[in-house]
Design a protein around this nucleic acid. Sequence first.
DNA 1: ACAAACTTTCAATCCTTTCTGAATATACTG
DNA 2: CAGTATATTCAGAAAGGATTGAAAGTTTGT
Lengths: 167, 167
Amino acid sequence: MLSEEYKRFIERWGSLGVLWGINRSMARVHALLILSEEPVGLDTVTEELEISRGNASMSLKELRNWGVIKRVSISGDRRDFYVAEPDTWNMIFSIAAERKKREFDPALEALDNLLENAEIEEGTGVHERLTELSDTMKTFDHILKRFLGNEKVSRGLLEMLSGGKSI
Amino acid sequence: MLSEEYKRFIERWGSLGVLWGINRSMARVHALLILSEEPVGLDTVTEELEISRGNASMSLKELRNWGVIKRVSISGDRRDFYVAEPDTWNMIFSIAAERKKREFDPALEALDNLLENAEIEEGTGVHERLTELSDTMKTFDHILKRFLGNEKVSRGLLEMLSGGKSI
DNA sequence: ACAAACTTTCAATCCTTTCTGAATATACTG
DNA sequence: CAGTATATTCAGAAAGGATTGAAAGTTTGT
């Protein structure tokens, strides 16, 4: 049984989930796992959050796809249990990587597609703007890839940067 | 009158908009401005995109809030016209800053709120995880602030990083 | 092989968000 | 200042997504 404060947090996290492109249920389930001392099973999720089994099951699956929770087994129990990803950097990187894949990559692709297929006259403002946008996004992409691709390196960089050294 | 290829792009950008937390109409309007050689007025938007005036007006307003389009005036014409932000780095930074504000900041706030109000016993796994998550997010926040706060510095860094130097 | 647990699917329903269009406000012109 | 062009707002309609619950399917452990 959850305290009022915990419940409030779960609801708040859930509302935020909508802004994040994951849905309310998923975010609530995630919050529940973050707040749970013990691994959590499907039944607990449905009971505490008052959502259907189907919804709970799907949400857990999606959260696993995002890499922010993990399945664990408890010996002597046949059921599946879940815990939030314990490494918070991992969690943040997983989210960032997943969102890049879903939101950024397709946009860049759409743009390059357009540049290839629509025969936009060179020298026009539109052509110039689109190529510039594509270039800028590619640079961004490049940086994100490096950043998210090599965890250890990134952490080092992050810690260094956050440590007060001027960029 | 837009070519088929342009129309396809606009629709594609619109679908992506949904993933981005801005809605389809806003994203379509944005795409239209990106593709337009000339400044675009409200009427053009409603006609090309076949949306209501109200929707077009709201979308333009929101896009201005995001800082990805600008209002311009054409002498001799009383109406308002709009163009896409011409500086693509600016555009990307605006989007990043806006999204941080909407998605990241409230999450961090919710977390710190919880830590303050719910008296979670120190030494428990939950307490440890929550403080660690908060710390990690604060580091992230710090970096993002620096990065987005000083445009010139960031650009320099970006260009340097993308220029092949190993991190 | 059986049973317990979990997953998937899907139509019906509920809830949210988006869009419309008329009403309202604002700005410009002569 | 009256009249007209333009822009914005907002209540209600429409569309779109999420959730449920039940049924069918799958996996796992004994």
